[in-house]
Every structure is written in structure tokens, then in C-alpha cells.
Design a protein around this nucleic acid. Sequence first.
DNA 1: CAGCCACTCTGCAACGTTGCAATCATCGTG
DNA 2: CACGATGATTGCAACGTTGCAGAGTGGCTG
Lengths: 338, 338
Amino acid sequence: MAAKLKDVAARADVSVRTVSNVVSNAAPVAPATRERVLKAIEELRYRPNLAARNLRQGRTGLIGLAIPEVRSPYFGEIAELLIDAAQERGWTVLIDRTGGLAAHERRLLADGPDAHSVDGMILSPWALTADELGRRSATTPLVVLGERDPKGTADHVVVDNVTAAREATTHLVQLGRRRIGAIGLQPQLSNGTAELRARGYRAALAAAGLARPPELTRTVSTLHRAEGHRAMRELLAAPVRPDAVFCFSDELALGALRAVHEHGLTVPGDVALVGFDDIEDGRYSTPTLTTIAPDKAQIAERTLQCLADRIYGRLGHLPARHVTAPHELLIRDSSSSP
Amino acid sequence: MAAKLKDVAARADVSVRTVSNVVSNAAPVAPATRERVLKAIEELRYRPNLAARNLRQGRTGLIGLAIPEVRSPYFGEIAELLIDAAQERGWTVLIDRTGGLAAHERRLLADGPDAHSVDGMILSPWALTADELGRRSATTPLVVLGERDPKGTADHVVVDNVTAAREATTHLVQLGRRRIGAIGLQPQLSNGTAELRARGYRAALAAAGLARPPELTRTVSTLHRAEGHRAMRELLAAPVRPDAVFCFSDELALGALRAVHEHGLTVPGDVALVGFDDIEDGRYSTPTLTTIAPDKAQIAERTLQCLADRIYGRLGHLPARHVTAPHELLIRDSSSSP
DNA sequence: CAGCCACTCTGCAACGTTGCAATCATCGTG
DNA sequence: CACGATGATTGCAACGTTGCAGAGTGGCTG
């Protein structure tokens, strides 16, 4: 049987309330008393009962994190940083894998994760439209990762996808490439990210006065390697072969890289590649992968900052905040001309 | 204000207890009454308060998962499968990243994750000795991932590391390789896994009558790519260069792969490589990576099976179980002789 | 020395749920 | 028709904690 406040109180010969005051620093306690209580706590190995505390305070100490998948390198890295940032603030993260399913995401918005009550939610939506996000009725503080409706009711933490994609594409232009393709469009998803990156891609080509033949862009169903692999094979099979491709994720780029090699061509010699996300894999692939690196640490930090502000009500009912985290173009071997 | 049982009861014109009975199926309720209650629940958007339920029942519905890191592909994949398996059983997984620190792991064993109470724990120890695991005083059901003291008090779910490592090494022998190195020994860790794989590696060489010069084995501080990269560089710089290397993880192997390429050599032509874990990255690297593939789905499933048995007391106080999940040697391009 | 204040400490009640035991209605059976 | 069995429903208490209001103690001030 675990020790409770009552047991500690009996042993230290004080009231239950005083023990509680020591434990949670709710009211001043005389040094001598505090000492005695702490000793009793130690001896009985007392640990507060979270369920009771939560019931009383209406807080759970839990943060819900809903992401499409844990195993993907990008989300894995983000999840880890978020978990660390949450831990620093005394929260524990409860992970919910949406699998990118709209129904699952919708349920989360309405009910919270797994029927567990949480103090706040971090959602990385995949299939949900900005509209649905905006209409959400739940009152749990929510921070959305990724660009969405600016008029939405929730805080957003984003990177500037249009600018980043433009920079990536412009980099390829400056290498002297002229048939620059793109892999990663997702017209079937209401997910705005792919569209924003596509916009940056087109803007860069337009600025360079380059043609934008539709056969140089490929849509994908997921951002996984397999899709990048398939898409690149299609591009290489077409009559007009690209001499560079901007992939909307590093995983797509790694799949594409493999397809190029299988086709007997070289990277960056025949085809230059740029990815997006700066996952660790890209630093050890052959060749290493040029990529857009979002500042993930800052994304995590600002996300929790937003959440904390909402939970502790520091923002009152201010309108939703839009935080843009910085990014950087990391030029590595897949796009350097040796 | 969220609706509670009382509100629903008032609206459905029944007692609080009856609503509770409908919600938790604790006692039979007449169809008509149930209907009325469900309607009220719907209208008021009632959701049970978990904190109160937990307080009353002494259960939390939470499972702690403690792993060294979330971002690593292997643990990410395992975590995802565990989360899914837990969800099927109505549990929510709470992830605690130990960072592979002994102190952190020790604290977990004593206190549980983040001072949150959980119904059960899954621990993938990194730095903890079998001895410390065995001396654990906490009574929370615990399942340990990875081989440890067979006399321990906790259930274990493992793969047969010795056999797997022997198979991997024997495969290299059968390719005709004679200077077969190993990357991944971790003598500084009490973690038994590396030692077991090393044992299998040595056994295979001994069985083939091959020499085992110590300069062909490399220790590492972590299982990351960077360490594999460094270790392989050292092996290639030595006077006796290996013609094959068994890496104790796929990440090590991918780092090693890069080092081989940087050295102007080819895989598998000059050096054949075999990894361990079957992470997704290895299926898309160039060349694709031969590896030992543990049956991760089964690891997750059996782990939760064990945990459920403990939590629901089906096993009573039976001695600790040792479950061995199957594995498989997947031969891919990094070790085929084209 | 009365009066006040600051500092500690305390008891009570409540958070929302469920286990327990009791009550009430209904039905089948001897 | 009486009685027990069965089924449906209920009230009370308790889980371990903290907010609140208040009591006790001692010192300082006027």
C-alpha cells in the first residue's frame, strides 16, 4: 500500500494540510516542521497521488501530441524535442498516432486523445482542412504544427514553406540546372503544406524564366521513401528527363536518390537533388543530401511556449498567434558540382 | 464547464449511479432507461472524468514506455508498434526518454515515469546492470526489452542475439570473406546486448576456423551512424583491411557504408556489410542493407501480452517469463556478390 | 498592556467517480 | 396466492488531494 498524506502527517505529527503545504509549497512552513515532514516523506517513500491531485485541481499534467506517425524520422525528431521541452515544464507527453486519418484527427479535435483528458494539445494535422480546424468546439488549448488558416482559432507554429521552397529551387537554378522537377505534390490532401512548397517552387522557376512543364512534377500519396522512389522512376522514364529535382521531404529525396542510382545515373552529376526536413539520414546517405533545415529545436520550444501561455491563461483571449520558425538551406553533396 | 454524471442524471431523470452503470457497463440497465441516458449523454456531450475514475479505481490507464531515444529509427518503429498494441488494449502510452542515462533509468525503476503513476512499465534499459534491475523494489508490473539477468524479477522480451549474430557472421563467411570485422562492441556498458552479439560473431568465426584479430573489432559509444562512420574509417586505415563487417545496428552499418564510399571503395565489392534491426532506411540505402530483422510486431505484441497478464494478475506471482521473439536474416545488396 | 499583525498551522469540504449493500418492482413457481 | 428469485435502480461512502476560512501563537507598536 502506497503511503499517503495522512500517513506522513501521522508520522511527522502534523496535520495533513501541513504536509500538503510542504509538498506543494502552497503555504509557508516553519523550517523545523518542514524538516520533520521531509524526513517522514523520505522514510515512508511518499509519492503524491496524481489522480487525486488532478481531480482536485482540474489539471492533468499531460499534453497530447498527435502526429501522423512516430516512426518517420522527421516526426520522430520533432516528437523527441517536444517531449524534452515538455519535460522541462513539468508536463508529460502522451502520444497519439493519427496515421494521417481525417476521422482520427477529427475525433481528437473533439474529444482529446484516447479519451484521456489533457491540459493541452499539439496537433500536426495531415488530412484535416483549415475549415474543420477552425470550427473546432473543444476548449482545450491547442497548438497546430504546420500552416493553416490564418483566421483559425488556434495558435500555429510554422516554417515559411513558400520561401523555403523558393530558396531550394533557386539554389538548383544557380547550379545551372534547367529542367528542374518537383516530387511531393499532394492535391488529394487538404493539407496545405505541399501546396505552399509547390508555390515556392513555381515562383523560383518563374523568376528564373524557366519553363514549368507539368510532366516534371509528380504527386505522391505519402512522403515516404517508396513514393519518392516511384515518382523518380516515372520522371526518369519520361522523354524529358529532369537534371534536378526538389523533393518536398528528405524521405522522398532518399527514395528518389535510390531510383536515380538504379537507373544507372549519378547524383548530383546527372540529377541534383534537394530535400526538406534535414533528417539525420540525409547526413549519412551517399551522396549526403542538400536540404531545407527547419529549426526543429525552436519549433518545439515555441510550440510549448504557446501552449504554456494558453494553459496558464497569460494570453487571455487574445487572437491566435502565428509563429514562424526559421529555416536554413544546407548545401551538401547531392547538389554540389564537384 | 464539462458535464458530469450528476448533470446527465438530472437530465435523464435517473440516479447518478444508473448513469455510471450505463457508462461503464457495471450493472444491467433496462433498454429504455439506457436509451434515455445515452441521449442525455449525447446532448450534454458528457465525457467521463478520468482523474476521478482513476482515483476511485486506483488505475490510470497509462503505460510507461522508457526508451533511450525516440528519434532513432529502431526505437521509433518499436515505439509505434507498442503504441498501437497498447491502444488496442485501451491503454495510452506515455513516453519517457531516458537518453540512455543510468541515473534516469534507475529513477524510473524506483519512481515510475515523470512522477506519473502508471499501470505498467516497459523499459528498454541501456546503462542499467542486470543486478540493479533485479534489485528493483517497485511493484509496478514491468516488462524489460532486451536480454538481461534470467533470474530477474521482471518479464523479458528478447531476440536471440547470439544466434542472430552468428547467422549474420556465417552469412559473410559463406560469401567467401575471410577478414570479417565487427563494429558495435560496448564494453563500457553493462548493457548485455552488444556482448551477446559479439559472442555470436566470435562463435561463427571460430566455427569457420577463421582468425579473430582484435584489430578487426571496434567499440562504439552509441549505435548511431556517426560512430559507425568513425569506426569504419579506423578499420580502413589499419594495415589489415576487412573484406566484410558485421555491424551491431543498421545505423552503425549506414555510417560505415558512407565511410567505405568516402574511402573510394565499394560495397559489397571491397567490403560486405551486414546490419542489425531492419530499419526502413536500410531498404533504401545504396546499396540496400543486408540485416538481421527482429520480428518487431511480435516483440510489441508479446510485450503487451506480458504486461496485460501482470496487470490483470492472470499470472499471479509466477516467476518472470522470458519470451524470445523470432528474427530473420534478410539478404540484400550490401552482401550479395553481383 | 491592549491591540494588531505576521506567521504557522489546522479542520472541513469538495473534486467526479464507482463499490457496496440495500431497496423496489416484477415475474415465475409451488 | 404467497414466496423467493431475478432484475433494475438507488443512496451512501470513499478514493487522496487541495482551496478556503479560520484558529492559535508570538512579537511589536502605540
